[in-house]
Amino acid sequence: MKKRYVQLIAIISGILLIILSGAGHQAIVSLPVAAVLSIILAPVFLISVGLLFSAEITDGDIPFMGY
């Protein structure tokens, strides 16, 4: 997987999570809706951030096949 795609996914999901959090607190979006969307986005955000962390030690792209 290309590092750029992972970066893009991390940024988009991160921004969406922050917007959802703000919208939930300001009651622009109802709490259950914000919660459900956060449940979907949180794994996407965390996995992409995790992959970016590990990509730092390789030459860029994220290896998906091993031994």
């Binding site: 995790g50 730092e56 994220i62």
Partner: peptide
């Protein structure tokens, strides 16, 4: 662990 090299076993 986040900073370790990651892959999926064959």
């Amino acid at each position: 662990f986040l900073a370790k090299e990651s892959w999926i076993p064959k």
